[in-house]
Every structure is written in C-alpha cells, then in structure tokens.
C-alpha cells in the first residue's frame, strides 16, 4: 500500500505543540483580555449539554482549526468579562459571538505563531464545533474558568482545508 504524499509529509499536531504551550497561550490571552485575576485551571470536567464553539482555521504546513468550546452561559459570562463596563445590560447573540470569536482569534493567532509557517489565519467562526477528522491529530486542553469547563482543541483537518480567501465576507455577519 502506498500512502498519499500529503499523509507522509504532513506532521500531526502532537509533533508540533504540546498541551503546556497551548495552556500558556490561552492563559496569557485570558489575563490580557478577560481580566488580570482571571485564571484557567487545568482540570477536566464535563461540558454542559448546551455548548457554543468559536474557532479559527489555520492553513499552512499544518492545517486545522483552533477551537474553543464552553457552555453557552459561560460564553456569555466571558463576553461580560471581556467588555467590562462597556457590556450592554442585555447581551444578544451577536455580542457573544463577537467576543467569543475574538478570544478564539487571539488564542488561534498565537497558536499559529508557535507552529511551522508560513500559515494563514481565517476569520473567527462561531457555532457548532467542526468535527475532529483525525483523533491522532488533536491537542486537547481541558480547563476550568470560574469553575466552568472550557475546552481548547487544536485539531487537524485532513484532507487539507482550502486556503482562506484573503477577504471573505464575515462568516457571522459584519458585526464579528
């Protein structure tokens, strides 16, 4: 049997980055974006039934997605923490998608910088997490924020995703 050239040449994510690096990147993003006293505690816990995911695609020598998943209420709490005093009294879905997407963008951008390049970064997307295509090509970090579970998954996409268009219309509307 002959493997396709792509399968031979492309490294999987555990060969490129480890959980500790992803944890450091996410932790730094949390302190800067969410608040100085906001820490991520590396403890696994079950996600609630109602979850929301935000992710960015990375296309390059390694191709995949950096996906953040948490409960919908936790995503709303994150939005309030991110916006601070600028948070509206009533958050709508666009507020949450925008803020959660931006956190994924910051974490994803810094994960991309830790990977072999050059790579391109897609625009943030929010919704139901993309499927894991290859369980061997995943770096999964489970943490607690304010006691609530959150998962950061750096997951490969085989076959490769197409290169993101440099200026596509925003997947979640102009407000993201």
């Amino acid at each position: 049997m002959t493997l396709a050239p792509d399968a031979v040449a492309r490294p999987t994510i555990p060969e490129l980055i480890d959980e500790a690096t992803v944890e450091a990147i996410a932790g730094e993003a949390w302190v800067a974006l969410v608040g100085e006293d906001e820490v991520l505690v590396p403890l696994p816990a079950d996600l609630p039934a109602e979850t929301l995911s935000a992710w960015v695609d990375v296309v390059g020598p390694w191709t995949g997605s950096v996906v953040l998943t948490t409960g919908r209420q936790t995503a709303a709490d994150l939005t309030r923490a991110l916006l601070g005093q600028a948070a509206p009294e009533l958050l709508d879905h666009e507020d949450v998608a925008d803020a959660f997407g931006e956190i994924a963008n910051v974490v994803g951008g810094n994960v991309k910088a830790a990977l072999p390049g050059p790579s391109t970064l897609g625009l943030p997307q929010v919704g139901e997490a993309p499927d894991v295509r290859n369980p061997a090509d995943v770096c999964r970090l489970e943490v607690l924020w304010r006691g609530q579970p959150l998962v950061v998954s750096v997951q490969g996409a085989l076959p490769a995703l197409s290169t993101p268009h440099p200026n596509p219309p925003h997947p979640n509307g102009a407000s993201l």
Binding site: E28, A29, V31, A32, L33, N105, V106, G108, G109, N110, K112, A113, G117, P118, S119, L121
Partner: peptide, 26 residues
C-alpha cells in the same frame, strides 16, 4: 493584531506601518 509570525510583522512594517502590537496586549 493576533498575527504574530515574524514574517507578518516584517510585511506590515515594510508596507508602511510604524509599530506592531500583538494581541493579547495590556
């Protein structure tokens, strides 16, 4: 921006940006 690859920073500065701040920032 969260684009923090060295090559991206060089491209932005070469295009005419004066300074580069990487997200997350304080």
């Amino acid at each position: 921006t969260s684009e923090s690859e060295q090559g991206q920073i060089v491209r932005a500065l070469a295009a005419g940006a004066h300074e580069y701040v990487i997200k997350p920032f304080t």
